[in-house]
Amino acid sequence: MLVLLPPSEGKASSGRGAPLKPESLSLPGLAAARAAVLAELVDLCTGDEDKAREVLGLSEGLRGEVAKNAALRTAGARPAGEIYTGVLYDALGLASLDAAAKKRAARSLLVFSGLWGAVRVTDRIPSYRCSMGVKLPGLGALGTHWRKPMAEVLPEAAGTGLVLDLRSAAYAAAWRPKGEVASRTATVRVLHAPTRKVVSHFNKATKGRMVRSLLAAGIAPGGPAELVEALRELGYEVEAQAPAKAGQAWSLDVLVAEVH
């Protein structure tokens, strides 16, 4: 099972660990694309601060994020699972999983990123600010920048089992499973059961809890149909729509009674 996650806008501080070692990151086929984004982002943020804020879409109150990006090469690095925070990651609760579930998380979870492309939760990275929606002056739109290297690397990373795609639209645009991989991919919406309306905040929390439930139970479904069965056994109310034709992903709706 491979679970595709969005990053979080807010991130924990880098801490005092050893600095980034780009060669240590998973998915080495993304190394050249990562190096290009890192170089331009650091260059941008060591120059005109106001221009950097404009490019990155940062408010005056987030001015400090520019300096953070300027120091990416020397800042302390921590496991990505500790860097990413926010509603989904709070609900996922990686730190409180038992040892076996943590190993499953290390194998299964892949976090998409405007800067790194995609990383495992065990990859050591510094805190940064660079969303997939950013358009860098030299490289252009990051979603477009990542499409070719992702298309070359991700099908192999997907293995032969389920691909559970929980990414938001901006990050999903960087890689869309195709062909045989798409046929064993499931995307998820979280709906308010009484109204069938898509929920926002509770969407992230539900997805985090859902992944935690699978990891804690040691369940690795082989495909979307098995995922639906597993989630129902874990107490989730799920409606599934199989693809109309080959080469398309399954669509799953997880229904929740409360909207927080």
Rank of each mutant, 00 (worst) to 15 (best):
V3H: 01
L5C: 02
P6M: 06
P7R: 06
P7G: 05
S14I: 07
R16T: 13
R16N: 14
L20V: 07
P22N: 13
E23A: 15
L25P: 09
R34K: 10
R34G: 08
A35I: 03
A36G: 01
A39Q: 13
E40S: 03
L41F: 08
V42T: 13
D43Q: 15
D43F: 13
G47C: 02
D48C: 02
E49F: 00
A52R: 02
E54D: 12
L56F: 07
L56V: 00
L56Y: 08
L62F: 14
V66C: 01
N69V: 01
A70K: 04
A71T: 12
A71Q: 13
A71H: 12
L72R: 03
L72E: 08
R73S: 15
T74I: 13
R78C: 01
G81H: 08
T85C: 07
V87Y: 00
L88S: 06
D90P: 02
A91N: 09
L92F: 02
A95E: 15
L97K: 00
L97S: 09
D98W: 10
D98F: 14
A100G: 06
A100V: 14
A100F: 02
A101G: 11
K102H: 01
K103N: 10
K103C: 01
A105K: 02
A106W: 06
R107M: 01
S108L: 00
L110K: 02
L115D: 10
L115N: 04
A118Y: 01
V119A: 05
V119H: 04
V121Q: 00
V121G: 00
T122W: 12
R124N: 10
R124H: 14
R124Y: 13
I125D: 03
Y128V: 10
L136G: 04
P137V: 03
H145V: 05
W146C: 09
P149K: 03
M150H: 15
A151S: 15
E152Y: 01
P155E: 08
P155N: 07
E156Q: 13
A157R: 05
G159R: 07
R167A: 10
A169P: 05
A169Y: 09
A169E: 15
A170W: 09
Y171M: 09
A172Y: 11
R176D: 08
G179H: 11
E180K: 15
S183T: 11
R184V: 07
V190N: 05
V199W: 12
V199S: 06
S200T: 10
K204F: 10
A205Y: 09
K207P: 12
K207E: 03
K207L: 08
R209V: 00
R209H: 10
R209Q: 15
S213G: 14
G218R: 14
I219A: 13
G222H: 04
P224N: 05
P224Q: 07
L227Q: 11
V228G: 04
E229R: 15
A230L: 08
A230D: 12
L231I: 00
R232K: 15
R232T: 12
L234C: 09
Y236I: 13
E237H: 06
A242M: 02
P243N: 08
A244R: 12
A246W: 08
G247S: 03
W250G: 03
L252I: 10
L255P: 05
A257T: 10
A257R: 12
V259K: 12
